[in-house]
Amino acid sequence: MSQRARWTIVIVLLTPAVVLPLLVGIYARTEPELFGFPFYFWFQFALIPVAAVLTTAAYQLTKHEHPPRSRAEDQTESIR
């Protein structure tokens, strides 16, 4: 996988972790409840492991990155 493709996937993985918590309209409601928790609360709690899984996946993808020996080889300088 090229560096560029790898970084595109990383961005795609991380975007929902940033955007979903900010879309308040989709979760500021009471129903359906779960274990007595209004939807508003349990949904935000549920987002935490979701974000953690996405960030872990992004970490696994970038774990073996090796800085290129010469700058010319790396097309993704602006993002790494």
Binding site: V18, P21, L47, T55
Partner: peptide, 21 residues
């Protein structure tokens, strides 16, 4: 008041991207 939770969800992907640089 509960904004502290989405705040600390959003912050980690940002740390992931910016701070290694």
């Amino acid at each position: 008041g509960f904004f502290a939770v989405p705040y600390t969800i959003v912050v980690y992907p940002l740390i992931f991207l910016f701070l290694p640089r």
